[in-house]
């Protein structure tokens, strides 16, 4: 058994009961547009991912469909509203809602973001950037400890796509994330598109950014499409729009990451301009083709 597999085994599960992990395959985001078609056509796909908050309602069609889809597929629950990077204390009612949801659907993976989205009781509906210094590091670790305690499971933390940096930052992003992983024991959801977007937006080398991440802790990968804009100086500014197919440069960076990680559950994210289901399935197949092309021995050596 490799070191990676050891570290990926979920911790804090019910004693004597082993929680399954996501398969080393590609998955797609579950969109309401596709629910009936998925049930009707039963596509061959590794897993589905949902945004936790969309299912924090009492009943109705969302739960009806998710229950049926969950019976047939592995599931990843991805939170977008916990505000782990927030200055406020974690919202315990929100944690309660998450606990109920995770208990109901028993997902193979739970992840959240290195970002904040609530402040002073107001929900700002975006994944906002945190400065990388000792104070935020301590707070983020404290919040992740609370999440993992409350939910009784290890969570994956996603690296952000950012558009600005803070004068107050004293650490590079991969170092900050590496320290969070080390202190809290959480895993890393490596969003390759976010690494690419942030690297372009902040003039960094994207491969170096991937290599510097705590790769042994990676439990899942996200891929998505971005939109292109420019900043005030005319430099390229990429926006994490989730509204386009995965860009060729991001596929390249994905190959680079997989060479170091080995096969890894990989999500194709699409939240804008949702295409027909077969289009997303084809993108997932592309990710699986890349995964299969890896030499298993080489990839195991890469993480050893």
């Amino acid at each position: 058994m490799t070191a990676r597999a050891d570290r990926l085994r979920p911790i804090g599960a019910v004693p004597g009961q082993k929680r399954r992990s996501l398969p080393e395959r590609a998955g797609i985001g579950l969109k309401p547009e596709h629910l009936q078609e998925i049930l009707d056509t039963a596509p061959d796909i590794g897993f589905f991912e949902i945004h936790a908050e969309n299912y924090m309602v009492d009943g109705g069609p969302f739960h009806h469909y998710l229950t049926r889809i969950r019976e047939r597929y592995p599931l990843s629950i991805h939170g977008v509203g916990l505000s782990i990077g927030g200055e406020d204390a974690l919202d315990e009612r929100h944690l309660d809602r998450l606990a109920v949801l995770l208990d109901r659907y028993q997902p193979e993976s739970f992840s959240e973001h290195l970002a904040w989205s609530s402040h002073g009781g107001t929900f700002l509906n975006d994944l906002l950037p945190v400065p990388y210094h000792a104070a935020t590091l301590a707070r983020v670790c404290e919040h992740i400890d609370r999440v993992q305690d409350r939910l009784k499971r290890r969570m994956l933390l996603e690296n952000p796509a950012t558009y600005v940096e803070f004068a107050a930052s004293t650490m590079a992003e991969p170092d900050f994330i590496g320290e969070v992983v080390r202190r809290s024991g959480c895993g890393l959801l490596l969003d390759v598109n976010n690494v690419y977007v942030s690297s372009i937006n902040h003039g960094r080398d994207q491969r170096a950014a991937v290599s510097a991440m705590p790769l042994a802790a990676v439990g899942q990968i996200h891929l998505a499409g971005f939109a292109e804009d420019t900043d005030a100086a005319g430099a390229s500014l990429l926006i994490d729009s989730h509204g386009a197919p995965v860009a060729e440069a991001v596929w390249d960076l994905y190959r680079y990451a997989l060479d170091r990680l080995g096969p890894m559950p990989t999500l194709i994210e699409r939240d804008n301009d949702i295409p027909p289901l077969p289009v997303l399935l084809a993108e997932a197949q592309q990710a699986e083709r890349i995964m299969k092309r890896l030499s298993p021995i080489a990839s195991r050596e890469a993480v050893a």
């Binding site: 558009y163 940096e165 500014l237």
Partner: peptide
């Protein structure tokens, strides 16, 4: 308190 790697004015980036 916002900075940019290329010294560009952060307003437009913050606007995202």
């Amino acid at each position: 308190g916002l900075t940019t790697w290329n010294g560009s004015a952060p307003e437009k980036r913050f606007a995202v």
